[in-house]
Write a protein that binds this DNA or RNA. Sequence first.
DNA 1: GACCCGTGGTT
DNA 2: TAACCAAGGGT
Length: 291
Amino acid sequence: MSIDSDTLIDWFDTVGRDLPWRRPECTAWGVLVSEIMLQQTPVARVEPIWHEWLARWPKPSGLAASSQGEVVRAWGKLGYPRRALRLHAAASAIAEQHGDVVPADVDALLALPGIGAYTARAVAAFAYGQRAPVVDTNVRRVVARAVHGAGDAGPPSNTRDMADVEALLPRSESRAARLSAALMELGALVCTARTPRCADCPVFDGCAWQHAGRPAYAGPAKPVQKFAGTDRHVRGLLLDVLRGTSEPVEKPRLDVVWSQAGQRDRCLDSLLVDGLVEQTADGRFALPGEH
DNA sequence: GACCCGTGGTT
DNA sequence: TAACCAAGGGT
């Protein structure tokens, strides 16, 4: 009783989505850009922006040659805009240290800004066909149910989670890479968080959760992320003003987005510290590197 | 490990 | 409608 890799790969070949970064002609750079954009952001919102980016910046050196401000503006409202800055920095490192070619080595990928345990292995597997445990929230949920018979994944433990997935991967490099994509797709389309579509599941017969009678999740409650009124909210409002203008703005233009001066100023300062905002010589505010 | 970092669609 | 959820990473 376990996940049969052949069955799952066949299912993926049949019903997997035809996403642009999965096409054979997509470059490793295209895969990397997609993985960064998809960090905590749904596919539907990423897809149009990804097309814009790849048309505008087909190679890392192109992105590196643009200003940080242009990159943050092109990021639009994908959220967590520090990702845009880190991707810009990663592109510079790739252009300067890797001959404008995305590295295939996991350790080299991990050394790039904004690339952690998941993204490094996702690029190695999806762009270069390597055998590497690709563990995201979808895979963690699939493994928790199908392998461990739990209703959902508990708190992440990178070492344990990667070992779990490693044990599922076929020996063949290319098959392992395909299974990695299939596991993620299963979690995204069938083995979903709220209402899993078990009737459509290709590995239903081997699922430990089914055999256990579908017990409810028994682990610790997941922390709820508030948003309204948080610094994240205010930072987003401030940055949205600067995204919408080509010229630097006076501080009063920023002050109107949030009534609490203390929080507002703290957030503006944090944006300056993060390098998402710059102050011009005459005291106005703008996206970085454009003035 | 705890906490922080955006945004918007779905239930 | 409030809560949940979405291909995580950095400190």
